[in-house]
Design a protein around this nucleic acid. Structure first.
Lengths: 128, 128
DNA sequence: CCTTGACCTTCCCCTTGCTGGAACCTCCAT
DNA sequence: ATGGAGGTTCCAGCAAGGGGAAGGTCAAGG
């Protein structure tokens, strides 16, 4: 299967798939014409990567998860630890964003939003 | 005032301040020895930028906000629109992260996390 | 007067995770 | 044979700076 079909079936852009090969996440065979030839196992990996990335795992995490996935003698504790650390990062990020949201909402509701120059948002940003 | 003091007073790293000058957000004068000489107005801008960045505004937004801040005849509606758009982006991001958090939490609570290889997290990622 | 150390300057490369484009090759249908 | 839709490589660039080298400057201490 060529890269276009692999892209369509995995849901990943062809560029992304080439990038993943570049950094060693997948290693499709090559046909005699130099085209990448994706086997089912490659497609499976790509789909795995797509789901892991969609859950926000970094490429480094994905590499580790893929290695664990392919290691039949892994301990699930290792996977769980990775996932828990990632979950903690997600929660921290949510907290940050919620703080921003709160502050920004306060400023926005105080702003008349008309054609006059007076603006509580700018006052807030300028340290008022 | 030299860049070190400007950094200490604005709370921004010196590197960041140089970068902001590079992209035209601040334009401190230069002393005869070539050192940047920050006036109070520069410091004020830096602090403004620090607060805007802390609220998650992009550099592009910051540039626009700074221009509005310095325009005495601005309409507050313009500022409010910018802020509301940013708020919407923040809320969308929170929603994304919460979706990830939910899925990931489900997987994590199902995983024994012991030394056995069976792992619902990996099963989930592999499309099970 | 000289040196030391802290500070400043510019410069360029590195990061994350791709994305776009140029130049070129290959395959299939007409 | 030719046109267009694939494929290939490599190069550049995005946000928003961070790290560190090579060198200039300044104030204090011996």
């Amino acid at each position: 299967m060529n890269i276009g079909d692999a892209a369509a079936r995995s849901g990943l852009p062809a560029k992304t798939i080439r990038y993943y090969e570049d950094i060693g996440l997948v290693t499709p065979r090559r046909s005699s014409n130099g085209y990448r030839a994706f086997a089912d196992s490659d497609l499976h990996k790509l789909a795995f990567l797509g789901r892991a990335r969609a859950l926000g795992f970094s490429i480094g995490d994905c590499r580790a998860l893929l290695a664990l996935y392919e290691d039949d003698s892994r301990a699930s504790a290792e996977v769980k630890l990775l996932a828990q650390e990632h979950l903690a990062r997600i929660e921290a990020k949510i907290a940050d964003l919620r703080a921003m949201q709160e502050t920004l909402t306060e400023l926005v509701v105080c702003c008349a939003g008309d054609d006059r120059p007076d603006c509580p948002i700018l006052r807030g940003l300028s340290g008022g």
